[in-house]
Design a protein around this nucleic acid. Structure first.
Length: 697
DNA sequence: ATCTCAACG
């Protein structure tokens, strides 16, 4: 409570302009547009009191630029671009303007906003496509919003994306895997389709590097380029949004416990600052639940003054009904405090936030290609994230952001940008997608930021061992091509193809769908005796996958009843998603010519099909080791069965797991008991050189 | 005897 805040300010680098107000746009024309006398990089950085936003965009698109980078700071101004382009005739003659977003929710909300502004209905002239939902009409829809994942999928049928005249990539600075892949591919398409216009919208600080990435230079032109300055450097148009100023405060001395410090800060705000909601950024569910409890207790102890606090947690795992509370209007005279993960940084926008408390940390995924394990670790955020978090305080009025780290740390130590997702993830899915698009030289692909070569090599190895790629790293036929068509992790797709051959595809579609949702059980957290008892009703001795089948069957028999789910501690929303996913997969495999059949409860066949995809995830119980300790066959890694598994404490001698979760130990999630001879049967090459001790069979 | 940021097809 004895913190002392030192105010500081953060001023945007460029000033904003709203074109209704007229005025200046920070604007750089392409290097070869002699009409404005720009011929080198330095001179591009002039301020020109020339164009309004609309005019600038149209000028660039019509006259010079194949690629335009729009640098902005969450102003939402990108959404106007498709309208401008449509008015200017870029959607005529059967052409479509595409605009991608990294999230489904963003696609939907932007589409409805734009449709409304144009006085149209969603699904007509303005439409959108996300997974499970296509609101477009061919020949009618002129402006199409879609997730970048959908656009990547569309490339598999139409590699040059010929129906689009303009492709707008929004939020490119978020650097999601799909966005990074898309940008690399669009650069390639551009070479074959010079008439295609690209508009990349990015945070201003990343605009420059985006521009350099899209710089085109003819192969034999290197010398000339150096003599004449850069060729065809994309234009940058910088638009600053109309946000309210946010006053930044830092702690004077580093804090040792950001959780306690966050709680203290909220109390301080509540005591000293005028009413207005507070948004606190912490790292995960544990932190958040603890902080909520601390705050609620404090508020109870200090009765009168603190009774006005309304403390709410926010994270993706939260049940729907609880998430809705977040959006409810704060009652008069009360102060809402939302304690959130970084879901509130980009995905969920809360209106009415005036104060932000930023712990300076978030959970981030790190992939180790050597062990093939993805870890989730608490790590310091980047300056870009810190700026984004602070911005959340200035949406409705001037706000304040309290950073639980020192100004010195922010200036000197905090990294400018985060590590792109591409560089800290398992790449099997990305690699097969590129292969399917005919990119043979994966290692030489022109990435915005290259992933570690170890990750790419590991991905190639895994795909080879699954029989998806051959010795020349080409897609095998039919297996490789079929796997590429299925929008799932290749190991799951392989399992589905094997199930078709073994005659248990019906069951496997269900299993694949269940594995694609987080958890089908409710509130796994805390001791939940009811759940444990209910689990026994569904539990199968063969393991979790077979248990999932039992749950799904029960759900169908109940008539997809939410009541039934509630009684059985099953997550109704998750199961609805399972039904959707299963239907989509069913349509997809039929299109591939497969005919789903059931094995009528032959669980051995089901397990063999699972092993066809997951043979590399085998582990063996360490007989004389610590209780319940296993070692993976591939790397002798020490692992344990996760307590949520039905095989927890059952400890079969040999198991195959779906995934590893690494916290204090490596835990195997979703486990089945197997016979080790099935491993050799499924993957003789993979196990040839590895010693499965015959004495243990 | 213990539990995962969020997001995409």
């Amino acid at each position: 409570m004895s913190q002392f805040w030192k105010p500081g300010t953060e001023r945007p680098q460029h000033c904003l302009l709203d074109d209704e107000e007229g005025g200046v746009l920070f604007f750089s024309a392409p290097a070869n547009s002699s009409s404005h006398g720009f011929s080198n990089l330095e001179r591009q950085r002039q301020r020109l009191p020339v164009f309004k936003y609309r005019t600038a965009i149209l000028y660039l698109v019509e006259n010079h630029a194949t690629t335009i980078i729009v640098g902005e700071t969450g102003s939402g101004k990108t959404t106007q671009i498709p309208q401008y382009l449509k008015e200017a005739g870029w959607a005529d003659g059967g052409r479509v303007i595409a605009c991608t977003q990294p999230r489904r929710l963003a696609v939907q909300s932007v589409a409805s906003r734009v449709a409304e502004e144009m006085g149209a209905k969603v699904g007509e002239e303005v439409g959108y496509t996300i997974r499970f939902e296509d609101k477009t009409v061919q020949g009618v829809t002129k402006i199409k919003f879609l997730t970048d994942g959908v656009l990547l999928r569309e490339m598999m049928d139409d590699p040059l994306l010929t129906k689009y005249s303009v492709i707008i990539v929004d939020e490119a600075h978020e650097r999601s895997i799909s966005t990074d892949m898309l940008l690399g591919l669009l650069k390639k398409i551009q070479r074959r389709r010079p008439e295609l216009r690209l508009v990349i919208s990015s945070a201003t600080i990343e605009a420059e590097s985006m521009s350099i990435f899209f710089q085109t230079r003819k192969k034999n032109d290197v010398g000339a380029a150096e003599a004449n300055g850069p060729k065809n450097l994309p234009s940058i148009l910088s638009v600053e949004g109309k946000a309210y100023p946010v006053e930044i405060h830092y702690v004077q001395d580093p804090v040792s416990d950001y959780l306690q410090s966050a709680v203290d800060t909220v109390l301080l705000i509540h005591e000293k600052e005028p009413l207005g909601d507070v948004l606190v950024f912490l790292t995960g569910q544990d932190d958040i639940d603890a902080a909520v409890q601390l705050l609620v207790e404090e508020a109870r102890v200090k009765t009168t003054k603190f009774s006005g606090l309304l403390v709410l947690p926010l994270y993706s795992g939260l049940p729907r009904s609880d998430q809705d509370l977040i959006f409810a209007q704060t009652p008069k005279g009360k102060r809402k405090v939302v304690i959130s993960t970084n879901i509130a940084e980009t995905s969920i926008t809360l209106e009415g936030v005036v104060y932000v408390v930023d712990s300076g940390f978030s959970k981030q995924r790190y992939y180790n290609p050597i062990s093939d394990i993805e870890n989730l670790v608490v790590a310091p955020i980047s300056k870009a994230s810190a700026k984004q978090r602070a911005g959340r305080a200035g949406r409705v009025q001037p706000g304040k952001c309290f950073r639980l780290y020192t100004e010195d740390y922010f200036v000197k130590e905090m990294p400018a940008e985060g590590i792109p997702e591409m560089q800290r993830s398992n790449l099997v899915s990305s690699v097969i997608q590129l292969k399917a698009l005919g990119i043979d030289n994966i290692l030489g692909f022109d990435w915005l930021a290259s992933p570690p070569s170890e990750s790419m090599i590991r991905a190639l190895e895994v795909l080879y061992s699954l029989g998806i790629l051959d010795e020349d790293a080409k897609l095998t036929s039919p297996c490789g091509f079929q796997v590429a068509e299925i929008p799932l992790d290749p190991m799951i797709s392989k399992m589905i193809l094997a199930a078709d051959i073994l005659g248990c595809l019906e069951e496997m579609l269900t299993i694949a769908a269940v594995l694609s949702v987080q958890s089908i059980w409710t509130s796994v957290r805390g001791k939940n005796k009811g759940l444990d008892e209910v689990k026994l009703l569904f539990a199968a001795a063969e393991g979790d996958h077979v248990t999932h089948l039992n749950v799904y069957k029960g759900f169908l028999q109940s008539g997809k009843s939410s009541q039934w789910c509630y009684k059985n501690y099953i997550n109704y929303h998750a199961l609805k998603k399972v039904v959707d996913t299963r239907e989509q997969l069913g349509r997809l495999v039929r299109r591939l010519g497969l005919v789903p059949k059931s094995c009528e409860g032959d669980t051995q066949t089901i397990r063999k099909a699972i092993i066809a995809g997951f043979f590399s995830h085998a582990s063996q119980l360490e007989e004389y080791g610590q209780n319940g300790m296993y070692r993976t066959v591939r790397s002798s890694q020490e692992v344990y069965i996760h307590p949520s598994s039905v095989l927890f404490r059952v400890n079969p001698k040999w198991v195959v797991y779906h995934s590893l979760v690494s916290t204090d130990k490596h835990y195997m999630h979703n486990v089945i008991a197997i016979d080790p001879s099935w491993l050799i049967e499924a993957a003789p090459d993979f196990y040839q050189l590895r010693t499965l001790n015959p004495a243990l069979f």
